[in-house]
């Protein structure tokens, strides 16, 4: 059961925190009710509650964390708080239940572009992050420059399908090591748009395709850099003969990213990109994260607060 607020935020060209938190308070219980109903489940059959502790918008996290724990308390159920970011990686288990670490994960969304290593001991460390915009932000900002609606990722994805990704060669990020940087390519797009007095539909599609190509290429370069270390790029080893790579987060719905990842990594790595609906924020991935964390550390022993700055653990 997913309730999207995209329509609510679309007129503003981005998520308005205050609106998001308001909508959460009103819609959360009805959403839970409907999910239980769809699953044909009664409260008596529920064994535990999992809830996102962070990271995210504080107003939204507060609602989820308190409502979830209140339900658990009132029904005397164990409760576990998990990381939304880790859940984007663990979403892969919904498709491959036997998946186990070590795993190289790429989490790309509106708020994050993180390269992580899920270690055999269950812990997760971040080995690359963005120095400026997240990949999803780069798509949103690019869409705005191209006059496309919010959310920008799907809009660019759709338009890019009609364009030539080699029409314009946008710069690739120069961030060192395994980090990302998207501000350069965004500025380059702005420059390309400004230097034209008018833009035909075909040109707009070409710009979208080329911009998307630059972002996708930058993301996959870093994944390859982490898998196949070179003196210049750093990167790690110990992934085993066929390293497992998971790509998750809202941007992992991007068709070009999925396709390019398969062609570039498909032969050397065991690649898992969950179905698009499991890449978008969803509660099933929180469930998957809860199962893994539950095995590792058990339920939370005492009430906990929301943590808007929570990392992967």
């Amino acid at each position: 059961m997913i309730r999207s607020q995209d329509a609510l935020h679309a007129p503003y060209g981005g998520v308005v925190p205050e609106l998001a938190a308001r909508a959460h308070l009103q819609s959360l219980v009805p959403v839970i009710e409907r999910a239980l109903e769809n699953a044909g489940t009664r409260w008596e059959q529920v064994d535990g509650v999992a809830v996102t502790r962070g990271p995210g918008l504080i107003g939204c996290l507060l609602v989820g964390v308190n409502l979830g724990q209140a339900i658990a308390w009132a029904r005397k159920l164990p409760v576990i708080g998990v990381s939304h970011l880790a859940a984007h990686v663990f979403a892969a288990l919904l498709e491959e239940p036997d998946l186990h670490p070590p795993v190289l994960g790429l989490v790309v969304s509106g708020g994050h572009s993180d390269l992580i290593r899920w270690h055999t001991d269950g812990s997760i460390s971040v080995i690359g992050r963005t120095l400026d915009d997240a990949a999803g932000e780069a798509f949103d900002k690019g869409a705005r420059i191209l006059g496309l609606p919010f959310p920008g990722g799907p809009a660019i994805d759709a338009l890019a399908a009609k364009g030539d990704p080699r029409a314009i060669r946008f710069p690739r990020p120069r961030a060192p090591g395994l980090d990302f940087s998207f501000s350069g390519v965004k500025t380059a797009l702005l420059y390309e748009v400004r230097k034209r007095t008018s833009i035909s539909e075909q040109e707009r599609a070409d710009l979208a395709a080329s911009y998307q190509e630059a972002i996708v290429d930058a993301l996959l370069q870093r994944v390859e850099g982490a898998l196949f270390p070179s003196p210049a790029r750093g990167g790690g080893s110990g992934w085993g003969p066929e390293p497992t790579v998971v790509i998750g987060g809202g941007v992992a719905r991007n068709r070009r990213l999925r396709e390019a990842a398969r062609s570039r990594l498909g032969n050397t790595a065991h690649l898992v990109i969950p179905a698009p609906e499991l890449c978008t924020d969803n509660a099933a991935m929180i469930g998957a994260a809860a199962l893994i964390e539950w095995d590792r550390r058990g339920p939370d022993p005492a009430p906990f607060d929301a943590d808007p700055a929570l990392g992967f653990a």
Binding site: L25, V29, I32, L62, L67, A70, I71, W73, R75
Partner: peptide, 19 residues
């Protein structure tokens, strides 16, 4: 308070719904 209201109302809604 933004934070306080969200905590109180979410707790109340969760308790009421669960019971």
């Amino acid at each position: 308070s933004f934070t306080g209201l969200r905590i109180g109302l979410s707790l109340a809604a969760g308790l009421a719904y669960a019971r």
